[in-house]
Amino acid sequence: MSSDPGVHESRHPTLKQYVGIAIFLFVVTLIEFVIILPVDFRGAGWTIAPLAILSAIKFAAVIFFYMHLKFDNRLLTWVFLGGLALGFAVVFALVALFLSWTPSPRSYAAEHAQPCTFDHEYVCAQYKPAPTPLPTPTPEGGAAPTQVPAPDDASVNDSGELVAVGQQIFLTGQGEGTATGCYTCHTIAGLEGAAGLLGPDLTNIGAEAGNRQPGVTADDYLRQSITEPEGFVAEGVERAVPGLMLMALTSGLTENDVDALVAFLKEQQ
């Protein structure tokens, strides 16, 4: 075999092709990252197939081009793919043996596992203690929420209770119905857990809502923002990106849930 540099080189991709592959790998990794960006997609079963396919494509690009298997003796391809296939077979066999296709706990773990309790700023984040029933009363808002009777809601007498329910829905997405937790996108300063950065800051929404649309009261504005989020987009508000807060995110809420959220948001002044 001659190893004359000229001959040797012609079997390798050109610099341009190498740059192309590098960009390709970069973009595919970015796509993978974007797939798991929305909170509801993280860990969702359907993401497994696209993620596996994308990484298989990256894998192939590296071995066939960077490792130039494509241009080398066929025997090397078989040697490598043979080991790779055996490796896969080992994974497949073991997973099949333990029936662990999903991460669900088997009987022992199901009986003995304990929730995460380690106390650290980030850790065990999904098990933060439930928020205190009432948000701290704000000075500008005048009286504390408990002392303000709900102006136009007959079904619930205690507006403080309604506000607390609203806060609960805001932080969990769970009311009588369900919605994507508002906290994932919205920040309310001083409310632990509400630190989302995808939508507008709602810290003072109670004071601002009445001025958003001419002739629309704070109540109606908030109600419409929740029930018909695609109806209008707040203008001149930071992070008021159209198309992010979609009907589908909130359509699972019941009338009462919306009432509670509106009551809660009005208190954010």
Partner: peptide, 8 residues
């Protein structure tokens, strides 16, 4: 009494 919470 512990509620789920996003990883901020």
């Amino acid at each position: 009494s512990l509620v789920p919470h996003s990883i901020t």
